[in-house]
Nucleic acid binder design. Structure first.
Lengths: 232, 232
DNA sequence: ATTATCTATAGATCTATAGATAATGC
DNA sequence: ATTATCTATAGATCTATAGATAATGC
């Protein structure tokens, strides 16, 4: 039996990565990144600053050097996080579908984007849900920033297609919610709550939803006998 | 401007009430009741045992006399809380609709129940969402207890109506999710996240959804020209 | 006599800061 | 020289308990 040095003076073998001095910006980014991961898992009050620092391999003092308070860190996440990853691309695709009046393609594209977003950016959506429940302002701003843009776009298309007689009459906001809700519900159950939902692959589910939604929106010949008393 | 007592408290909610020695059972009930309110507002880790005790006007020691740990209190909420308020009544109504093959009535009844549940038992649903996010077992058990019963019932009706040719073919689980999701999404946005959603009254929204969903489910004459290759 | 309740406090944990230290850039 | 980092710790807060006190039931 030998005696291993309890305190290595200059450890040639560094098991717990001894030094990794990052630039201020890089460290800040790293802190934000791990903070997002932890806040999304445990919520604001369920996350300890100690754990965030530990995830980055630094002391808490470092964290508080970059963010004066835990709240500041939380708000910084909002300002930083761009959930709009590949959003422009998607919006362009949607606009192309709209221009061709390809309703099925339009719906498919919408559903695919929702599912993709929850699948690939689960942490972000968990963060939003926590923030909404905890009453923080993130989801409000999120919806103003990128959500309302998308909602407005959807609404405009629905109104357009209603005017053209291709979509059933009714509150456009209700139609928009109908379009988005099955995918949102499915994605939330599966990716956020980790429920064992429908076992079939996402693509098939989306396709089912798309066909059903199209049927819901297309004016049915028989049920349109009574012109509703809606005001112009 | 808060205090929505989802479960009626026995004590007349008197903050500066000097003495109010309750029986063990009554105090326990009161603690559970206020705990539900607070956990539903702030989540498990966002709620302090001190605040629960204070809401009941007693010291923390009393709380820990009734529940050994904070976790125990949280689990006790699960065992206690019956979200099935007026659930049997509703199920009976649904079965009556089913017997008459009143699809529109069936859907209306479903949507009304979902909206009512979120409107009247907001705290419970917030609790479920928090628990799901925080990874506690409550929502799992909840779904096993009353959720799956309802889901099974819905699924059975969908399958039945598909066999009768009244509902479009396709994955029954997808149809069930389609039926429930707009109301769930709407109710969650409005009652849980407090968003300013569609401004019109709930009843009108529900009616819009019902009509649209019925259209989605009824097999369309024109689009059913190609018999799908689904196995029997 | 029983028991619901309180006061007081232990022990752990959590956010945040002060002051020292060591790696980097010039 | 600058600054990213650490150690150590203050001060607050939070869960939980011990022991004393007072209201109730018999």
């Amino acid at each position: 039996m030998n005696t291993p040095p309890a305190v290595p003076v200059l450890a040639p073998l560094a098991p717990p990565a001894p030094r990794a001095r990052l630039s201020s910006d890089d460290r800040r980014r790293q802190l934000l990144s791990h903070a997002i991961a932890l806040f999304s898992k445990h919520g604001f009050s369920g996350t300890r600053t100690k754990d965030i620092a530990a995830a980055c391999g630094v002391s808490e003092a470092i964290l508080f050097r970059h963010f004066a308070t835990k709240e500041d860190l939380y708000h910084a996440i909002l300002d930083t996080h761009e959930a709009a990853a590949g959003n422009d691309e998607w919006l362009a695709e949607m606009q192309a579908m709209a221009k061709r009046r390809d309703d099925l393609g339009f719906i498919r594209c919408l559903l695919a984007q929702i599912l993709k977003s929850f699948r690939e950016d689960t942490a972000f959506h968990r963060l939003m849900l926590y923030a909404a429940l905890e009453g923080h302002s993130l989801p409000g701003i999120f919806h103003e920033r990128m959500g309302s843009q998308m909602l407005e776009f959807l609404r405009d298309y629905v109104v357009l297609r209603q005017r053209e007689g291709a979509f059933r009459k009714g509150d456009p906001d209700a139609l928009v919610m109908l379009l988005a809700s099955p995918a949102l519900q499915y994605a939330t159950s599966k990716h956020i709550y980790g429920m064992k939902t429908i076992s079939r692959p996402e693509k098939e589910i989306a396709e089912e939803f798309a066909k059903l939604l199209l049927a819901a929106l297309h004016p049915n010949k028989e049920t349109s006998k009574k012109t509703s008393k809606r005001k112009a």
